[in-house]
Every structure is written in C-alpha cells, then in structure tokens.
Design a protein around this nucleic acid. Structure first.
Lengths: 342, 342
DNA sequence: CTGTTAGCGCTTTCAA
DNA sequence: TTGAAAGCGCTAACAG
C-alpha cells in the first residue's frame, strides 16, 4: 500500500545524469553547474522527492533521534520536563523517542534496549522508582551512548545528572512552618527508594533538628506511592494519633491534596489547626480551597538543561569522562494552606 | 566517541565464514548446520552483537516507529491518550516518536514532515486548534502513510478518526442542570476552532431548546483558550451581568476551576446559588471544594483504540479506503458543585 | 564539473 | 549447507 518513495536514482534516471550529480544538486555542492542544479531541483520538487533519513543515518551513524524514558508520562511533572527537552532539541533538528517505564525496572531496561537498537544518538533518563541497580546504564555508556540522568539521582552511577535540590526545598518548607509557630510538624513521604523522597525527608529532619525540635517517629508516615489516595490514607493515620500534628509537610502536591480532603472531612481548619505544605506546585494548587502552599520546582528548566547537556555531549564527542552534576533550586510558594509569619 | 557497533561482518571475519551464513544463524534459518549456528550465536553473544535496525529498516522499508503529534503533551488529557497509545503498541514492538505542536499549525506540519523523513510507519495526530486546512494530512496520505486522527475531528477530511461524543456529554450535563432546577444556564467555551468546542456548545444549545429554554447570548462567553485563567476572565464577565446565571457549564475542568475561584471570591455559594459543571474529569476534580461535577471521557481508551486502528491498517496493507469513524461515549460524574435532583 | 566505485549493515537470490 | 553478489538510498573519494 505504501507508495514507493522517489529516490535520488529515480531523478538521475529521469534526467540521464548520475545519482551523484543529483546528490550534489540536492546538497547544493559547489561542484555542479547552475543550470543542471536548477533542472534537478525543479524535477525533485515536481516529483515530490524527499531524502530518506534512514539511508543517511546508516551512512552517518547518526539518527538525530534522542531516547527519553520517564516513569510516567501522565504526570504533570514529567510531561513538563519533556516539554523543556522538546523545546531545547527541536530547533537542532532532533526528534524524541519517548516512553514511560511505569516505574518498572524491567520495562526501563527493555525500552532502553529497544531504543539502542534504533540507534538513538543519546539518552535522557529519569529512572523508575524500582531501579536500584545501574548495570543497564553502565552498559549503555559502555556502548558509547551519551546518557543524561534527570530528576532522580542514581547514587554511585557516573553520568551527567540534572536534579532539583529537594533537600533545600524541604528544609525551606519546614523552616517556614516552624517560623509560623507550628510545633508538631508531620511528614508524609513518597516511595522510599527515590532519591527525591530521601532528600526531602532529610531536609525535613534537619530543619527540625536545626531548631531543636524533637524527631517524633509517629509523625512520619511512609506512603505507598505519591498519589492523592496515598495522601488520604496517610493523613488518616496522622489524625488517628492521640495527639494530632499542627502541620504536615507532604512529599508532593498530590499527597497534600488527598490530605487536605481528609482534614476537611474531619472538620479541622486549615491552616488554623493544621498547616499544610506540598511539593511540586502543580498548576491547580493555587486553585484549591484553601490554596496550597507548595515548593515550586524549575522542572521545565530541568528538562531544558538536561537536553542541553546531552546536545553538548553529542557535539563535543569528548572522550574525557568529566561528568556534570547540576542542581537546580526550588522555591517555597506561600499560599493559604499555611499560617502566616507572626 | 561512540564505539563502533559489532556488525555481522565482524562476526563473519572472526569465524572465517560469510556474512550470509552469520545472518542465517542469527535468524535461525533452517539452511545452516546446527554446529555452525551454535558457534556463531555464541560469538555473537560474546562480542555483544546487536542488529542494526537502521539497516533493517532501509531494507524492509519499515521502521516500527509511529509518529504521534498532540497539541500539548503537558495536559492531562493528551498525556493520558498517549498512555493508551503506548500500552497498545508497545507489545507489538512499535516505538513512539512523540511531539507537541503547541497548537501551532505550522509546527504541526513541520513535525509531521520531519517524521515522514524518518519514515515512521504511520501517524497518530490530534490536530492543533489552528489547523483549519488539511492539505498536509492529504499529502501524508497520498505518500502512503496510514493516518489516524484522534480527539479532534477534521470535518471533510477522509481518514480514520476516533473521537469522543462531546455533544452527548454536553447534552447530558445541561439536561442534568435543568433537571436540578437551574433556570439561567451559562456556558463558557474553549477555542472556537475546535470541533470539541463546537460540539459541546451544540450540546448545550440543544439541551436548552429541547427543554424550551431561551438561548441568551449574554450567557455564552467565548474563552480565549481552555485555561483556568480564561475561566477566571470569563466567569468575571458572567458575574458582572445585571442578572447572573444560576449554573455554568464549562468547556473543561481547567476553566471550571478558574470559574470556581471567582465565584468563591465574590462570596457566592456553590451549588446553592450557582451550579458548576466541567468537562474532562481530571484527577484532582474530585478533590476540589466543592468537588467538581464533570463529564468523564474515556481518553485512555481513545488512545488505545486509535493505536489499534493504526496497527490494523499497518497489518492489513489494505487498499480500500474504508475509513473508520469511532465515537466513544462520555459520562456525567455528579459531585458537589451541582445541585441534586429535587 | 561529472560519472564511477565503494560502502554504511543487512538480507536475499542464485550458484556452487 | 555455504558463499558470492546484488541492492535498500545515499554520499564521498577518486578519476576523468
């Protein structure tokens, strides 16, 4: 069914010239007479010729395709990062092959292998939460593929990485809660495997210690994942404590939203009785009632920078394993769900 | 920097056999001795050989790559559709090349052309809101690329299409508002170019007429786009009317959320004074206060079905232009932002 | 300036 | 069973 594409040989035959001459005309090489060039280009347009990138790629060993693997494409977070990646590479003529691992380690490997077969020029990967072993990344690197890890860190892996300073974001948030007079600050976490979860938790703990607050294990609830449903479940646990918290720092906005609904159901006032803080600053967070205080992340920039680093690697063809580790700064956005500074 | 890949010729040379023999071993052709086959396969594994898909694609004229273009990847809506597409094609070994047009007609053309050059096997397109001319689609079809249009219809274009019955969704929503006693039902639209906007508006109008309600032009506000900001602006206009509406049917949830915030600011009660209905049923809609009544769309299935149709076309290699037009049914999800049936 | 040749990595006749 | 040769579409080196 697919019509045969017009090839350079078709054009050559038509005009009784050699394929190389046609090629020269098409790439406007200086070694061709203006006349011929004109005729050839006209015919090319007339016959609706378009070069076969496949043949070119085979020749140049470059596909101008970049492989992107994210845990889930549906999340605001990762789709925004992809947005940044796309905006960066689009102008350089790179195309994106995108897939989601669904937080599956095996799927991540499978996807990367498939992309390697297509000979993508490089990889932009945000590892799944179940990726605890980095052999596949090492293998990809050994095969000569440039690789940039973004958003989630892989401790111990040598590679270019771009992440957000989760520690700082969490620290800022909890410091703020303390300054506004909160005394019993709880924390709902996300998937424990993730570097982001660990850093945010550390930020929470350090902010408490820094202010000589006791660490109360009861007030730290481990979520199954980072969904609103998990937020609901975890907040219920917190409200079932004999002494409930007067503030909750959540791993992300989704959790915070779930928590908010539970707090409301129980007739507890936000922020008067409980201050609530999220992380990510999703678009709708300012529209909740009360609007959600959250830690904004430069996620679009994260995509942009990751892509830039990959492109740099592609151009430099550098041999020196001088890996970059870029850390972007998040910012606390204060809204109604937390008390004001007294 | 990129290491040279091990080729079939490398293996052949190593073992002093011909490349064709190696090829036969790798594809376990019957015309090869078991012995040789074993030796070759072992060496292949040892040398970490992997076939070059590029060469294969050039030979077979099939890349096993599908091109996907959506207006914006960041929206919950389209990323969920992509999710469905991915789940459908992944198991068949197809890879996805995904791009967003950012609602730009020119960008859409540019992206499709670039994908055509890479010789994707087919296209899954959700047209931009500025795509009013379908020449590029016709051209792609003429070149022999299978094409499936999804979510947004292109009236007059002959192609496989999968859409949601927006008319029905809107009709259901407005019927419901009427049944719950609303008298002055307003409508905030999205981008006027879109088939979805037109159908939802038509559903709104017909539901009114069906119930002998007058059409009041004042109560129909045209949004610039379908963002929450637009919802804010449009709702303000409605509340500035001498006689405000007692219900608002919004083009989508984002607009409804914006509208909700304005209504709240003015101290008007939802749903007692104004009922509010959205469209899309985004994940957070049930967490708003009040939770948002909305029209749920089978958007994941829409992606799934679109992909299935494309794959069918790819397999059938059919010549008969027997285009499919699939319409999926949405469902009204009633929550707190609308009154109950009396 | 232009044509011939070779080759990117692989498969598929066609002979042997 | 195996190898040689041709070709997918294109470019580049080398003659002319």
């Amino acid at each position: 069914m697919k019509k045969d594409q017009v090839t350079i040989t078709d054009l050559a035959r038509e005009l009784n010239v050699s394929p190389s001459t046609v090629s020269r005309a098409l790439n406007n090489s200086p070694f061709i007479s203006e006349e011929r060039k004109k005729v050839i280009l006209e015919l090319a347009k007339k016959m609706n010729y378009s070069p076969n990138q496949l043949a070119l790629s085979l020749l140049n060993k470059r596909t101008k395709i970049l492989g992107v693997v994210v845990p889930e494409i549906t999340s605001y977070y990762f789709s925004t990062a992809i947005n940044g990646i796309q905006d960066k590479v689009g102008s350089s003529g790179y195309k994106l092959m995108i897939s989601q691992s669904n937080e599956s380690f095996e799927e991540e490997i499978r996807l990367m292998e498939a992309m390697a077969l297509v000979r993508v020029d490089g990889f932009l990967i945000s590892p799944s939460s179940n990726t605890l072993n980095y052999d596949h990344f090492e293998k990809i690197k050994d095969s000569g593929f440039p690789l940039v890890i973004f958003d989630r860190d892989c401790v111990g892996l040598e590679a270019d990485k771009v992440v957000v300073d989760d520690y700082s974001g969490a620290f800022q948030a909890v410091e703020y809660l303390i300054q506004t007079g909160c005394q019993r600050i709880a924390h709902i976490t996300g998937s424990t495997n993730l570097s982001t979860t660990q850093h945010r938790r550390k930020g929470y703990l350090d902010a408490l210690q820094n202010n000589n607050f006791p660490i109360l294990e009861d007030l730290i609830v481990i979520g199954d994942d980072s969904s609103s449903e998990s937020g609901v479940a975890c907040m219920q646990k917190l409200l079932d404590l004999r002494q409930i918290p007067d503030a909750v720092f959540c791993y992300n906005d989704a959790i915070a939203i779930g928590a908010m609904s539970v707090i409301r159901e129980r007739g507890i006032e936000i922020p008067d009785q409980i201050s609530l803080v999220g992380f990510d600053d999703e678009p709708y967070s300012s529209y909740f009632k009360p609007s959600l205080t959250s830690v904004w992340q430069p996620i679009y920039d994260l995509g942009l920078l990751s892509a830039k680093i990959l492109l740099d690697n592609l151009e430099m063809e550098k041999e020196n394993p001088n890996y970059r580790f870029e850390v972007l700064k998040p910012e606390l956005v204060i809204r109604e769900s937390s008390r004001k500074i007294i």
